[in-house]
Amino acid sequence: MKAFLIVLVLLIGTNCLFAQEDTYQTVTARVDDVLYKAIYKSSDRSISILKPNGKTMLHLNSGDCYEEGFSSFKFVDFNGDGYKDLFIEHMSNVAGRCDLLLYDKLKKKFVLIKDFPDYPVPERLKNTNLYYSYHRSGCADSNWDSDLFKIINNKIIKIGNISGLDCGDKEIGVFITKVRGAKEQLIKKYPISEIGKYKNYKWGFIEQYWKRNYRKFI
C-alpha cells in the first residue's frame, strides 16, 4: 500500500511539472524595415512584442483584456495603411471577440486600441477608414447588432448601428441608427423579412447595407 501511494504521489508530481511547462507560439513581421516578433507564452497567457535586439516593446496579459485568454494572433495590415498590425483573437463565448494593436508609424510602436473587444468580428470597408462589427444580442441570435465605426487617435468612434430584432416584446424589424456620441437618430427601418432577400441572410444584408450607405453616417 505504501509503495502504491509513493508511486501515485510521484505520478501526480510529474504531471504537475509537465502542466507547468511553458509552451510558446511565435509570429514575425517586418514593419517599417524592422523585424518584430510576437510571442505567446502559455503559463501566464501573455503576448509580447519584441524588437530585433530582444527588448520587449509591449507585453499584454490576457487579464488586461478578458480572462478567457487568447486563441490566435497574427500580423496583418488591418487599417490598410501599408504597415502590419497585430490582430489577436480571444477565447470567448462571444464569437469573434478580439484585440488590435495598431502600428503607429509616427511613434514607431504598437498601440492597443481601447474597447476593441466590444466590436466583434470586425471588417474593414474597402477603400475607406471605416469598419463594421457583428454580435449576438439575445434570443439565440435572433436579435443581433452591427456597429459602424472608425478609429481616430487609437480610439473607436461609433457612428452607426444596425439592430435586428426577431424575438421578444419589442417591435420586430431591422432598425438603422445614426450615432453621434450619446445621441442616436433612427433613419431607416425594414421588416425583418428583408434579410431573407440576401444570399448570406443577415450577414449579407449587413455587408451590403454598410457598403452602399456608409457615406450617410460620415
Rank of each mutant, 00 (worst) to 15 (best):
L50N: 02
E171N: 11
K199W: 09
L10V: 08
T26E: 07
G204E: 02
S42L: 03
D147G: 09
S137T: 12
C65D: 08
C65L: 14
E184D: 02
F110Q: 02
D118S: 13
F75H: 03
Y103D: 04
W203K: 13
D85W: 00
K211Y: 08
L148P: 06
D166E: 14
D145S: 14
W203P: 00
G96M: 10
I157S: 04
L50R: 01
S46E: 01
D64K: 05
V94Y: 06
K41V: 08
L86M: 03
A19E: 00
P122A: 12
T128A: 11
D104K: 02
C65T: 12
H135N: 11
Y131H: 06
Y83D: 00
V27R: 06
E171R: 11
L130T: 07
L102K: 01
W144T: 08
G69K: 04
I192M: 14
A3G: 10
L100A: 00
I88V: 14
F175K: 03
Q185S: 10
F175H: 04
R215S: 14
K55S: 14
D99H: 03
K114E: 15
S137A: 15
I218S: 09
G82Y: 02
F110R: 00
T23L: 14
E89Q: 13
K170E: 15
S46C: 05
N143G: 13
C167W: 09
L58I: 10
I195N: 04
Q185H: 11
N129Q: 13
W203C: 04
S71L: 13
I172R: 09
Q20V: 06
I152L: 11
G69D: 04
